[in-house]
Simulated scan of single mutants.
Amino acid sequence: MEIRELQWFTALAEHEHVTITAERLNISQPTLSRAIRRLERRVGVPLFDRHQNRLRLNKYGEVFRAHALRAISEVSGAEQRITALIDPDTGTVALGFLHSYGTWLVPDLLAGYRRLAPGTTFELRGDAADAVVDDVRNSRLDLGLTSPRPAGDDVEWTPLRDEALCLLVPPGHRLARRRRVRTAELADEAFVALEPVFGLRQITDRLCAAAGFVPRVVLESTELSTLRALVAAGLGVAVAPLTGSPSGPGDHAVAVPLDDPQARRTVGVVTLAGGPRAPVVARFYDYVRSRAHAPHV
């Protein structure tokens, strides 16, 4: 059953005359008649009562017309929505990102892009790195801002900039007034950390492994804001992005730079291999990549 046959049927139901309807549809009478007979064979009953050259919609036809009109309306609505989604100026981009990027990276990108394409809308979703990449793989997201580089050749990841990592310690901690600290000095510390599915936790584990120890994680969280609060409460130390981290003694956690060349995470944008196909997504993707290595992405 084709949508055009439903459209022909509803037109015939309105005019109840094959010749007039065929002329208005710009098709031949035999083509229209065959299409109606196919519909009737499919539903198993006549949809019209025939009276010489005239047709009269019967009770089965009335039922079928009501559903045909809804089907045509749904398809038309879907076409309009898809057109809006792919329009490079007024479409929608589904963007995922790590929660911590929601406080600086995402607002900066969207503010800059809205000046270029004010009609573009965004569906925003903050999540863990693995979840963002998984949603891109399954087309639930168009693009993702994540770290570290995801594994697999089914996605492509473009690095944008490096973000320095620091050590968060409670006020009054033995390392709070240090200018820098080496990762190896933390072997005996209690750590608070994000759960293992988060990219920052994976980087933390690698830093500690490279320094020759496994971090003793006493508390796990799913949000950086909670992580900072746990450190400020004296429950442990944590590795966190230097962006947005407090830097001086007081009621908050204290950020101390890490003296380790690997103490950084590379921010990147991930999409399906081959790049985005929808024009609206491709345009924003190109903009994001054009901002790579900018002082403020």
Score class of each variant (00 low, 15 high):
V169N: 06
S100M: 06
H17V: 07
L230P: 00
D260S: 11
V197D: 03
A240E: 08
E23V: 13
V214I: 01
P159C: 07
I203K: 02
I3F: 13
R289W: 01
A232W: 04
A273D: 12
G250H: 13
V231F: 05
A176F: 04
Q7F: 12
L160R: 00
P257W: 12
A35H: 11
A111P: 01
V269N: 04
R228V: 00
P196W: 00
L85D: 14
T83Q: 14
D162Q: 11
P249K: 12
L116I: 05
V63Q: 15
T31S: 14
F198R: 03
V18G: 09
R125K: 02
R140T: 00
L194V: 03
G274Q: 10
A94G: 05
R37M: 04
S245E: 12
G236Y: 06
A240P: 09
V133N: 01
S245K: 05
E195D: 07
G144I: 01
L194A: 03
T243Q: 14
G248W: 12
I82K: 11
H99N: 14
T90H: 15
P171D: 11
T266P: 08
G96E: 06
A184P: 07
G172N: 07
C166G: 06
G61C: 13
L145T: 01
S33G: 06
H51D: 15
T92V: 15
A176E: 05
A240M: 06
S28Q: 13
N53R: 15
